[in-house]
């Protein structure tokens, strides 16, 4: 019963953060046009409560959060934590991630998705998804990446540590480590972000990489 509650709760965190981010953007637009004064922690709390209320709206007896869970109940920890970082940075105008942290975040999502999804959907007889059920080379590879990022003082390493902790605590509906590291939306977002970085890098005026 407790596990059901925990997995239900965590399946809603990522969509809730995505909605908070959208509302933040709307609030920033309103502030620019209409002199909307609320900002910082006050605005974040207000937006968080509004987003929570939206997630709890029931349609055909199912809350919107659970409609989203019908499509994806296992949002990866890096995507969820990256959204939390973006929301925090927007709310308090304080950078948490440096450009190299974002590059690591999007590279991990993009490369991991390319390595996982085609094979898991039947491209070859090797199914890397099997490696996520129990201790396997996947755990060693992720541990090495995490250690290397920590040594490089890259903050994306903390997101990988959070993913390992969440897997250990079984915070998601899935019991497969891959689902704590990656999800298709994270993969897609990562590819879009890397493409944007690449286009920006090729443009005459260089802008450092950052959140979407």
């Amino acid at each position: 019963m407790i596990r059901d509650f925990v997995t239900t709760f965590f399946s809603a965190v990522c969509p809730w953060l995505a909605l908070v981010l959208c509302l933040q953007r709307l609030a920033e637009g309103a502030r620019a046009r209409r002199g909307f004064r609320l900002r910082g922690a006050g605005l974040l709390v207000l937006i968080g409560v509004v987003a929570l209320a939206v997630m709890l709206i029931r349609i055909e007896s199912v809350a919107i959060a659970r409609w989203i869970a019908a499509v994806n109940a296992n949002f990866s920890v890096p995507l969820t934590a990256a959204l939390a970082v973006i929301v925090y940075e927007r709310a308090f105008a304080r950078p948490v991630f440096f450009p190299s942290d974002w590059t690591a975040c999007w590279s991990f999502g993009a490369i991991g998705s390319v390595a996982l999804y085609p094979l898991a959907l039947g491209l070859s007889s090797v199914d890397p998804y099997e490696w996520g059920w129990r201790f396997s080379p996947l755990f060693v590879i992720v541990a090495v990446i995490t250690g290397w990022l920590l040594w490089k003082q890259n903050r994306f390493a903390w997101l990988l540590l959070l993913a390992a902790l969440a897997f250990h605590l079984r915070l998601l509906e899935s019991t497969n480590y891959w689902d704590y590291l990656l999800d298709p939306i994270y993969g897609l977002v990562s590819m879009v972000a890397l493409t944007r970085q690449w286009i920006t890098a090729r443009a005459p005026r260089r802008v450092p990489p950052g959140p979407l």
Binding site: S125, V126, D127, W133, T175
Partner: peptide
């Protein structure tokens, strides 16, 4: 109380 489910591939493709 728990059901533990894992999966393995029999063959690939089609």
């Amino acid at each position: 109380e728990d059901i533990v489910a894992t999966k393995s591939r029999m063959s690939a493709g089609w």
